[in-house]
Every structure is written in structure tokens, then in C-alpha cells.
């Protein structure tokens, strides 16, 4: 197939003897919005810096838009728009000046500079701040300017390093929707450690941990991996010392229960348990009946699907849920 926009083959990067990236290979196709997920220091930024030709891999090779990152770095850099993690912009310039500067640097000339800047200003909603100095902008607006500079030359590929970090929830949602919009026509790689963002904005997720890719799937596919829903039950504490143990044993006795684990209830007077079913049964009725039978004072009962967060934790800390429960 010819629509592979980014192709990395065995990328490794060593910083002063420390292996930051360990043989990362991946392919990104046209029109994909790829979420790059991982804890801090996992190698997300390093991968992006390599793909944008800011730094070179110690080993391995990569092609972006058909150009090799080492031998044709100018070709690669013409095809990408990049928003680095720091979103460092020239603070002493006006927003308009800055975007015009970037447009000129990106090889846009003459009349087109103004036209293109006007388009991205509209796209990113910067109209109100265009004649302000960059330094005076809020974090959210700076992030928009960062996006605008990455978009001004209409690159087929966008590489965004943590575009939503440090924003308040409203701003984050706005930026996320913006990226979703942008992603309709382009290939986008964005990195984040926020799972909700990935669930909404991306159609494919790569999870990277300690420099290796540990999962490559759709957000739904990843959730399916986690599978079962869980039931969380909260009861009031009662007199005797062994009450917690008793409860746990009682809940474990319900038919169809795989395992039970005490979790933090957030209150001194209450106990919470996580009950995992063997299949995908709803355990709430059974748990309720049990509580009535044993005359536990039930204060909370809910069922929830496993979210990406748990999958993420399992994949990146290397401990599965089973071991987690056993310990």
C-alpha cells in the first residue's frame, strides 16, 4: 500500500549510555490520528524529535512522507508541522508577526503569507489576540498559536507533543476538538499521558513504555483487552475486628465471582470492595441480596467498565491485574 505516511524501522536512541528508545518500529497511514501514550520518560518525545529531524536515532531508520530522516531531512521537515512539548514561541513577537515569520520560513511567499495566516488564525480561533504580544497570552492561547504555526503551511503530517498538557479542562476540550477537526484531512501523531483524550481524539493508540512499544490497537480494542466490567460495593463498617475479612469472604462467595479485592473507600467509616465477575455478568443484584441477608448497611453499589487507565497501568508497569490483586 502506498498510503504509509510515517514508517519507522528499529529506531533506538541512546543518551549518554542510557537507552531512551529501544528498537521502535511503526507505521502510520494517511488519515490516521495516532495517540502516542506512555508515562513520562517512556520515549514519546524522543520518538517525535527523531521523526521531526531535531535529533538523530542511534540506530534504525525512518521515512516520513517518503523522505528519509537522515539523508533528506529538509524534505521531511517540509512535510511536517510540529508542536514541541515546551510550546516555546518567540515571546517578544506579536502573534501576527510570529505566524508571518513561520509562514515565510516555511517557504510561503508574497500574498500567500497573509492569506495562509488568515486561514489558520480562523481555524485556531486566534482572531481576538492577533495583535497581542505572545508573552501576554494565556497557556491555552499559546497552545493555539503553537498549533497555528504547525498548520500554517498545510502540512500533510502533524506531530504534536502533548498538545493538551497544562491546559484547564475547558481549554483541553477545545484543543482536542480542534485536533479532531484537523485530523480529518491529515495524518496526526499526538502524544499524551491523558487517556480520556486518546479515547476521544484518536483512532489508533500506541502505548510505549521504557522505550518499547507495548501495545498497538484502537482505543476500543484496548478496552476489549481489559474486558470485564467490575462491580464496586461500599458498606458501612460494623463492630468486630474481622468484619472486613468477613465481608470479603462473603462477597467472594457469590456465584460467578472471579475475585474480590478491598479498595480505598475514602472514608474511615466505610469499606469498599471491587468484585470482578468471571464472565460479564452484572453482579449488583446478587451483591445487594447478600448485603440484605447479612444485614450489611449498603451505602454504595455501582458497576463500571474497565477503562483505558487500567489497561494503561497494566501495560506500562508490567504487572497484570491478577498479580496486582494477589499482592
Amino acid at each position: 500500500m502506498n498510503d504509509v505516511m510515517i514508517e519507522a524501522d528499529g529506531l533506538s536512541k541512546r543518551y549518554d549510555g542510557v537507552l531512551a528508545l529501544d528498537k521502535v518500529s511503526m507505521q502510520v497511514r494517511q488519515g490516521e490520528v495516532l495517540g502516542f501514550l506512555g508515562p513520562n520518560g517512556a520515549g514519546k518525545s524522543t520518538t517525535m524529535k527523531i521523526l521531526t529531524c531535531f535529533t538523530s536515532p542511534t540506530e534504525g531508520s525512518a521515512k516520513v512522507n517518503g523522505c528519509d530522516i537522515v539523508t533528506d531531512s529538509l524534505g521531511v521537515r517540509s512535510a511536517i508541522g510540529y508542536l514541541p512539548e515546551s510550546t516555546a514561541l518567540y515571546h517578544d513577537m506579536l502573534v501576527l508577526e510570529y505566524l508571518e515569520f513561520v509562514a515565510e520560513m516555511r517557504g510561503i511567499v508574497g500574498e500567500d503569507v497573509r492569506k495562509r495566516v488568515k486561514v489558520v488564525v480562523e481555524e485556531t480561533g486566534l482572531g481576538d489576540v492577533i495583535s497581542k504580544e505572545v508573552r501576554t497570552l494565556s497557556k491555552g492561547y499559546k497552545q493555539r498559536v503553537g498549533l497555528a504555526q504547525a498548520l500554517v503551511h498545510e502540512p500533510p503530517i502533524l506531530i504534536l507533543d502533548e498538545p493538551m498538557s497544562g491546559l484547564d479542562p475547558n481549554q483541553a476540550v477545545e484543543i482536542r476538538d480542534l485536533i479532531k477537526d484537523i485530523g480529518r484531512q491529515r495524518t496526526v501523531i499526538l502524544s499524551t499521558h491523558n487517556l480520556a483524550e486518546v479515547q476521544v481524539a484518536c483512532n489508533r493508540v500506541l502505548i510505549i513504555s521504557k522505550g518499547r512499544i507495548v501495545a498497538d490497537d484502537t482505543p476500543d480494542g484496548l478496552r476489549d483487552r481489559a474486558g470485564k466490567s467490575r462491580c464496586v460495593v461500599t458498606v458501612q463498617k460494623q463492630g468486630s475486628e474481622g468484619f472486613a475479612k468477613q465481608c470479603e469472604a462473603a462477597f467472594a462467595g457469590i456465584a460467578g465471582v472471579d475475585r474480590v479485592r478491598a479498595i480505598d473507600s475514602g472514608s474511615e467509616a466505610e469499606l469498599s470492595f471491587e468484585i470482578l465477575p468471571k464472565g460479564d455478568d452484572d453482579l449488583r443484584p446478587a451483591a445487594f441480596k447478600l448485603a440484605v441477608d447479612k444485614s450489611y448497611t449498603l451505602v454504595g453499589l455501582r458497576r463500571e467498565g474497565q477503562n483505558l487507565e487500567q489497561v494503561f497501568r497494566e501495560l506500562t508497569t508490567g504487572e497484570g491485574a491478577t498479580e496486582g490483586a494477589a499482592s
Binding site: 524529535k49 521531526t52 529531524c53 531535531f54 514541541p84 516555546a88 513561520v102 520560513m105 516555511r106
Partner: peptide
């Protein structure tokens, strides 16, 4: 120091 060099050097410029 500020990191602006990252945007500058990822532009198609020698």
C-alpha cells in the same frame, strides 16, 4: 534555553 530552537530547527532550514 527557552526551547524555541526546536521549532526553528524543525523548519525546512539548513
Amino acid at each position: 534555553r527557552t526551547g524555541t530552537i526546536e521549532i526553528l530547527l524543525t523548519m525546512p532550514v539548513r
